[in-house]
């Protein structure tokens, strides 16, 4: 079963729909195609996971739109929240 929702194919983050532990699979689909990445941190319910490696300073997308900038390098499968995402580039 899928464990996260990707709203727009351009998105670099997905929202998990059940709590995910580090090392567990995060399964999702985009336009009918199934994908899977491994969580590298715990991700609480309805929090975001990076779908790909994101470099410090890169724009982070959700809803196909910019929701902010990466404050540090982020790995695919990592929890994305206040420690590594902000509206402003710092």
């Amino acid at each position: 079963m899928y464990t996260c929702v990707v709203i727009n194919e351009k998105d670099s983050v997905a929202t998990v729909t059940s709590p995910v532990k580090a090392g567990e699979d995060i399964r999702y689909r985009i336009k009918g195609n199934d994908f899977c990445i491994k969580a590298c941190t715990d991700i609480p319910l309805y929090h975001k996971a990076a779908l790909k490696d994101i470099k410090k300073g890169e724009v982070i997308y959700k809803y196909g739109c910019k929701i902010g900038y990466a404050l540090k390098d982020i790995k695919a499968g990592e929890h994305v929240h206040t420690s590594n995402l902000d509206s402003k580039m710092i």
Binding site: P44, K62, Y63, I67, G68, S87
Partner: peptide
């Protein structure tokens, strides 16, 4: 909101 997983104002408003 943050505890619930929302990080930035843009993200909240976009939702």
């Amino acid at each position: 909101n943050k505890e619930g997983g929302l990080t930035t104002l843009e993200e909240k408003s976009l939702g």
